[in-house]
Amino acid sequence: MTTTNNATEEELRFDDSGLNTWTDEERFEVTRERLAEYAAATNDPIPAHCSGDVASPVFAIVPVFEALLVPAVDVLPVELIPRVVHGEQDFHFHRPIRPGDKLVSRGKMIGYEGL
């Protein structure tokens, strides 16, 4: 893939050796304050979310964000990181996220498409 930068053509190289490699575990401790802050930031009107009693389902991106970013850095040219849009992710919900939970996540990049 190539990109034009200030009328100079520069070759950007992806490193496929980083594909299908799990990241180290990322740990995240859930707090009532963090859940309430997320609800406020996303204009969530549900009382249990606003009080921090339970996380909204979309909060699940917060603890896994680092685990999703690390594999991208290992594969993509650093110049493209600000332009990255992920195509998909899988979340497997076993129960609601609650204050006091200690969550562990990891990620891997399984492919890419330069557009």
Results as ranks from 00 to 15, higher is better:
22 W>T: 10
47 P>N: 08
71 P>N: 06
82 P>T: 08
75 V>H: 05
68 L>W: 00
76 L>R: 03
100 G>N: 10
35 L>R: 05
52 G>S: 05
51 S>K: 07
106 R>V: 10
73 V>M: 09
26 E>N: 07
41 A>R: 07
94 H>M: 12
57 P>T: 13
5 N>E: 15
28 F>A: 12
41 A>K: 01
57 P>V: 11
37 E>Y: 00
7 A>Y: 04
55 A>L: 05
73 V>K: 03
24 D>L: 02
82 P>A: 04
6 N>F: 11
103 L>Q: 09
95 R>F: 03
70 V>N: 01
47 P>D: 07
38 Y>R: 01
5 N>T: 15
56 S>A: 08
37 E>I: 01
79 E>H: 01
38 Y>L: 05
74 D>F: 03
92 H>V: 15
29 E>V: 15
15 D>Q: 09
103 L>R: 07
78 V>W: 00
27 R>V: 14
105 S>F: 08
18 G>C: 10
108 K>C: 14
46 I>S: 03
50 C>N: 05
43 N>V: 07
103 L>W: 06
65 F>C: 04
82 P>L: 10
61 I>C: 13
87 G>D: 12
13 R>Y: 04
93 F>C: 12
29 E>N: 10
71 P>S: 05
8 T>R: 11
59 F>G: 08
11 E>G: 11
30 V>S: 07
86 H>P: 06
6 N>Y: 08
85 V>K: 09
49 H>P: 02
46 I>F: 08
31 T>F: 00
42 T>W: 00
113 E>R: 15
26 E>R: 06
42 T>G: 03
40 A>N: 09
101 D>P: 04
71 P>K: 03
59 F>H: 07
39 A>E: 05
10 E>S: 13
19 L>E: 10
4 T>C: 09
62 V>A: 07
42 T>D: 04
89 Q>W: 06
111 G>K: 13
40 A>Q: 05
109 M>K: 06
77 P>L: 07
48 A>K: 02
114 G>R: 11
32 R>Y: 00
55 A>E: 05
58 V>E: 01
58 V>F: 06
87 G>C: 14
19 L>Q: 12
4 T>S: 13
25 E>F: 03
51 S>P: 02
114 G>S: 14
30 V>F: 00
94 H>D: 13
16 D>A: 12
19 L>V: 15
82 P>M: 03
78 V>T: 10
65 F>V: 06
107 G>P: 02
103 L>S: 10
40 A>L: 05
33 E>P: 01
93 F>S: 13
110 I>T: 15
5 N>I: 15
59 F>C: 06
39 A>S: 04
11 E>I: 13
21 T>G: 02
104 V>S: 08
62 V>W: 00
78 V>H: 02
90 D>N: 15
11 E>L: 12
102 K>N: 09
18 G>L: 06
20 N>R: 12
10 E>L: 14
61 I>G: 03
13 R>P: 04
27 R>G: 09
70 V>Y: 00
55 A>N: 05
114 G>Y: 09
34 R>N: 06
71 P>W: 01
45 P>Y: 00
73 V>T: 10
92 H>M: 12
6 N>M: 11
62 V>Q: 01
26 E>A: 08
10 E>G: 04
63 P>K: 03
73 V>S: 00
12 L>G: 10
52 G>V: 09
28 F>R: 11
69 L>K: 03
